[in-house]
């Protein structure tokens, strides 16, 4: 049995000492997933509350069937995606625009300086600067919700494809395909951002 389930049982029995370790272990993870998907602190806070309330209420929905971590990721992901419903903006065009395009022979389309652009050795301070963070943040905002959810579960939380698939209730194949497309879209935005100025030919 998942040792954390013992903590949940104690929490339900009214033992406040069980609260701290559960919060330590799960509150930040839930918040990160919730914020990553909803992109709103207020929504993320409500998701965290929902998840912990559900933890009190619904023993039967996870006990003995899955590890607490898996269950929590699933509840958090669902709650966050639900909050996004009806809030989609004009954004989903961006993904197709941002995927690489290819010539008939299978080579990437685009001029030479573009297909050779390699900004991966940009110094960490610049990659994590306020400006670059804002670029990444806007690109994350623009991803369709289900793509962003996969990216958050895999690349932020570090879940495996199988764990992310369980959290999303989807197939591993679909998780992998969306993850790849989401990363490609972000890569494209970053490559445009770091691209050498037009006309400055090397």
């Amino acid at each position: 049995m998942d040792p954390d389930l013992g903590l949940v049982t104690r929490l339900r029995a009214g033992d406040p000492v069980a609260l701290e370790p559960l919060m330590d272990r799960y509150a930040t993870r839930v918040y990160r997933v919730a914020y990553g998907i909803t992109r709103s602190e207020a929504d993320a806070e409500e998701v965290v509350q929902d998840v912990f309330h559900t933890l009190f209420r619904k023993a039967e929905s996870f006990e003995g069937r899955s590890a607490l971590g898996t269950w929590i990721y699933r509840v958090a992901t669902n709650a966050a995606l639900l909050r996004r419903r009806g809030k989609r903006h004009q954004v989903e065009v961006m993904l197709e625009d941002a995927l690489p395009t290819f010539l008939e022979d299978g080579h990437r389309a685009g001029d030479r300086s573009y297909v050779l652009a390699d900004w991966s050795d940009t110094p960490e301070e610049e990659l994590l600067s306020r400006e670059t963070r804002a670029v990444v943040s806007r690109a994350l905002d623009a991803l369709p919700d289900h793509y962003r959810a996969v990216l958050v579960l895999r690349d932020v939380e570090g879940l495996s494809s199988e764990e992310a698939a369980a959290a999303l209730g989807e197939s591993v194949a679909s998780v992998k395909s969306r993850l790849h497309r989401a990363r490609m879209a972000l890569r494209e935005v970053l490559t445009r951002h770091f691209r050498p100025v037009e006309g400055a030919r090397s």
């Binding site: 900004w119 991966s120 050795d121 972000l186």
Partner: peptide, 26 residues
Amino acid sequence: RPCVAYLNTYKRTRTLAGQVGRVEMP
């Protein structure tokens, strides 16, 4: 070389998304 550049930037995108996304609960 274009695919090497693609791989390098793809990998860096992956870690950067992780770094930027690792927010703490206030």
